[in-house]
Each structure stands twice: as C-alpha cells, then as structure tokens.
Design a protein around this nucleic acid. Structure first.
Lengths: 168, 168
DNA sequence: TCTTTGTCTTGACTGATTCTAATATCTGGG
DNA sequence: CCCAGATATTAGAATCAGTCAAGACAAAGA
C-alpha cells in the first residue's frame, strides 16, 4: 500500500480521517483491507456500488478480494457507519455520510444518486391509525426524477451509463 | 396464519373485477395466464413477490411458468396497473393498488409491507437548490419499523419468516 | 384451412451477493 | 521469540432473483 505522501492534506483527507478515526476508536480491528475500503468510500462523494468500491480498492491494494469488500461493507453498515441504499435497479450503493440525516434523489434515466435534504420533513408523519401498531424506526424518502443530462434530447450519442453516473 | 375465510370475498371480488376489467378494455390480450396473475395479485392484500405470485397462480393454473409470471408482472408495471416495490431485502414486491397514491410501511423484522397514507405529504418538497436541475417524477416514502409481532419478546419460537410474512 | 402474429414454456444464462473451506495474520501468554 | 487461539482474508463454488432465447402453441384473419 502506498504510504500517503505527507503533503496531501486536503478536504477529503479530513473526511477520511474522520471515518477511519471513528473506526479505530471502536473495538474493530482496522486491517489494511478494511482501511482501504473505508478510505475509498469516504473519498468519493458519489454513492458507490460494492463492485465500484472493489475496483477502486484494488487500485490501492491489488490483492484485496471482492468477498472482503462485501464483508467490510456489511460490517460498516451493521456498525451504522455506512448507509446501504437500494435503488431497485442494479446493485446496492453505499453511502458513508451517515452523520447528517439525509434522503436521496434518484435519476430514473441513468441511475445517478445524490443526497438531498427535503423541506417539510418535520410535518411528515403517520397517524396512530396508519401506524398499525408498528414501532417506527425511521423513514426513507427517495425523490425520483430525471437529471439534466437525461432530460436532454437523447438524439446523439446519449451518455453511457457506467457505474459512475454520479454527476460530480 | 389462516387466510381470510370465504366470507370476506365481496370487497376483494370488486377489486379483482376492477383490475381485470381495466385490463380487458386495453388492447391487451387477456389470456388465461395473465388473468390468473392479475387475479392473484388483486386478491391479496399483502404485497407479493413474483415467486409468491407464481405459487398462488400455480394452484389455479398448474402449467403456468415462472417466466410468464415475470413477463406479466413487468407488463402490468409498464402499463402502470401495478406498482413495483423494492424493499432492499429480498425480491421485489408487486402492489396492484395504484389508483390511490400511497406509500409504504416496512417491518425490518419480518419483511412485512403495508400501504399507508402519511400526513404532511403536501409540504414535503425539494428547494430549487436541492433539486439539482432534476425534473421530478415522483417520490417514494418508506417508513421502517417493527410490527407488533416483531416487537414481541422474541423468547420462544419467534415467528418464522416465510415468503408470506404479511401480518394481514 | 393456412398463415400470421403474438404468447407461453423450458432451460440456459447473467449479475449480485453470500457461503465455504482453506490459508494467513494478529494478539496475548509463556 | 514462539505458540495457541482467535480473527481476517482469499478463491471459488453456490445461491438467489430475474432475464433471455428458441421452439411449441394458440388465437385471429384471409
């Protein structure tokens, strides 16, 4: 693993440290593989699929296996450090930004996914009647729509749908 | 868990006719297989997976194939007659109740799913800023919680999680 | 009836994820 | 330092949900 060059202290580094720091302070063994997964996740602002995490992790630690990526992601989710999002299309995405409550905006055209903070959240509720005796744990809101690219003419070469998709 | 004894038919029958009637009046060939799928879907008040639809359909029309069930469900979804819901756990569920806008309440314990009409929907929105240039198409809200059974002690034999699960 | 068109079935196939069993690595005690 | 036990990692097989493709079948029109 490339020893990080001392100079590269930028905004992402802060986030990385934040997540990795939190992990270190748990009773969780922070191995090379696990750190790489955590760093990859925290270092991207789009929501990556397990496969995409694997690709990026392999660039840093070529021996890492897909199974380990899945294991690690599942552990992070279980610890509540990472949020798992299923879009209904294709693989699940993983979102490290769990400190701030947020919801999602999904592009039905290309599968792009971004975080949003809707308004009017506080008034959203289920009447006792509608609650059917459930003990509520949370709520997920997904706005569906069409991103600027996908609204476009779609005449020419469209735009390929890669695992990236994430419009910066 | 015992399904509804013969008495409760009336209301459901109405729904069946309603869906089948709508289908008949489209340019859609209403074959035996397709009608069975539609009836099975409309006849249950829990949201079934494709596999569960297949099981029930086979009890009525044993020769029906799983592929046909999938094809038919996808067609119904494409026509807007049926709503496809992915819970993030396990297979997709299909919900024939598309006439009334509704959202869902999901049990994190057993996977049961029911329709709900939240309050405060009208004030829920994305500011222009948060909309990121998307052309909004809709919004899905899933309340997550624990149904009465799943809140229980969990001491003795718990309750098995079958494909039914539906806490009627 | 013959043809055309559309539907259905079977079974192979893909993609996403999990499981398994063997191997490697870490940690604490002597 | 070396060992034992616990934990992590690996490669690949297995599983699950869903799709695809090719031929069999069935209904509607000439």
């Amino acid at each position: 693993m490339a020893r990080d060059p001392a100079g590269a202290r930028n905004a992402e580094e802060a986030v990385i440290s934040e997540l990795v720091e939190r992990l270190r302070s748990r009773d969780w063994r922070l191995t090379a593989q696990r750190r790489v997964v955590a760093e990859v996740l925290a270092g991207e602002h789009v929501h990556l699929s397990a496969e995409a995490v694997y690709d990026r992790a392999r660039r840093i630690l070529p021996e890492i296996s897909l199974a380990t990526v899945y294991n690690t992601l599942n552990e992070l989710v279980a610890m509540g450090e990472v949020l798992e999002i299923s879009t209904g299309e294709g693989p699940k995405r993983y979102d490290p930004n769990t400190t701030v409550a947020h919801h999602h905006l999904y592009c039905v055209g290309c599968g792009g996914l971004r975080d949003v903070s809707p308004e009017g959240l506080d008034t959203l509720s289920l009447s006792a009647d509608e609650r059917h005796g459930f003990e509520l744990v949370g709520v997920d809101i997904v706005f569906r729509g069409r991103c600027p690219q996908c609204q476009a003419p779609a005449t020419a070469g469209a735009h390929a749908v890669t695992s990236e998709s994430g419009s910066a």
